[in-house]
Design a protein around this nucleic acid. Structure first.
Lengths: 236, 236
DNA sequence: TGTATTTTTCTTGTCGACAAATAAAATACA
DNA sequence: TGTATTTTATTTGTCGACAAGAAAAATACA
């Protein structure tokens, strides 16, 4: 309602065809970083004004986000950021652990030399984020690291499911990492290094084992954070 | 080009909001039944005329289909039915076998009584289709049967990936089942019955084993059909 | 005849407008 | 004051139109 941003539009013109992708990327980032928390209403008209474009490309971006489960659309009514079913994260954890295993295993089996460079790049980004205690970057680069491993596994079906799970993981982690956590990150840096080594050595069984262990570590940590937070919630 | 269907439109009016779903369902069916074979161009304007609606809801349906990998969209150019990578079906088979196992196992673990009724319903539909040697219905009900099992497993992440794989499977099977196959179907009816029994008994290990065996049977059959067909292709 | 350049045709991406569906507000009634 | 009904306002789903890009056709030139 307050008429801010009267004249600070650094995007006077846009290339044809870039509209949907721009909206999609923007909303996706804002959703995954919890700038738009679960349940937030999404107003097409407001977005159209903010981005200075018509509702058509915005709607198409919303359809895409809905297809990926990031937003929910009630027919003829509002559309809002998808909620997270905190009461039962088991299906999420089950799928996550399995995909960690499968993708790491396939990466050991099918990766090409150039894949390793990409993976190592994200590994270093993650390590840097841990060092500088930047939670948001940590979460994002961790997801990128594992997505890169999945790509190296060369199974698009697994990759796309895993990407979706990693996205959801970003939201969940973000929720519990407003402030940084002490021992969580460094251990993961080491585990990542071990996973890379197993993949590079094409040791499929080791990759599988490490992937599984890593996944279970993460799940355990999240559940721990969760239990603690639930107590806080009850305390309120 | 031939101007058929000049006046046989039994859909003079449509409910508001049903547009996209109608187009989505129609195109999805036509794609999965190979009425629109891989590579077919999809013309928005033509569709708009055929369905007597504007291009907007059609485009939104296309965005959704693209998200599920059923169509490919080249920016500023044509959009067409997604191709099938026949040269390397291994990623597909890998994902399919794993999802067969996982969903069957989870169904044994998590199903509720009402789920069994649904599953048995599709089982009977499939058996009936086999008896009447109706290939198209056979393929569709087989997919519905396994999708129902996945639903009973209650893991939406696995379910949605499996649905996508079953869809792709429908296209592949359809390609090689123009005419019916002799021994293929009946064996599968029996295997389906065994799977149902394992699920009903909540025998998780048996469900896993049967699901895996069933999946590998299917993969083997498809590969056999494939090898034979490749010879025919070469012979041409 | 074959290649390069311009013109035309076609398709897509985006826009502004309008009407249906719903929610919110206002009013009537008990 | 509390509930039911009408009125208003908001938001969504759909439409027809138009211009940007790309493909196809036509033309120029060697």
């Amino acid at each position: 309602m307050t008429d801010i941003d009267t004249d600070n539009s650094p995007i006077p013109e846009r290339k044809r065809g870039s509209g949907v992708k721009m909206v999609y990327d923007l909303l996706r980032d804002e959703i995954l970083d919890l700038v738009l928390p679960p349940g937030s209403p999404i107003d097409e008209v407001q977005l159209a004004e903010r981005l200075k474009m018509s509702r058509t490309p915005i709607r198409e971006a919303l359809v895409r986000l809905a297809g990926e489960g990031l937003i929910d659309t009630l027919p003829n009514r509002s559309t809002m950021v998808a909620n997270i079913d905190f009461l039962n994260l088991n299906p999420f954890f089950d799928a996550l652990v399995l995909m960690y295993r499968v993708t790491t295993r396939l990466a050991a089996q099918n990766h090409r030399p150039e894949d390793l460079a990409v993976i190592r790049g994200f590994h270093e980004d993650y390590a840097a984020a841990v060092k500088s205690r930047d939670a948001l970057t940590m979460i994002a680069t961790n997801a990128a690291f594992h997505a890169a491993i999945a790509e190296a596994g060369r199974n698009p079906y697994f990759t796309s499911l895993f990407r979706r799970l990693l996205d959801e993981g970003r939201r969940i982690l973000r929720l519990y990492y407003q402030s940084y956590e002490e021992q969580f990150p460094q251990r993961f840096v080491d585990e990542h290094a071990a996973i890379i080594a197993a993949i590079a050595a094409r040791d499929i069984e080791a990759a599988d084992r490490l992937g599984k262990a890593h996944a279970e570590q993460i799940v355990e940590q999240v559940q721990k954070l969760f239990a603690r937070n639930n107590k806080l919630d009850i305390a309120l």
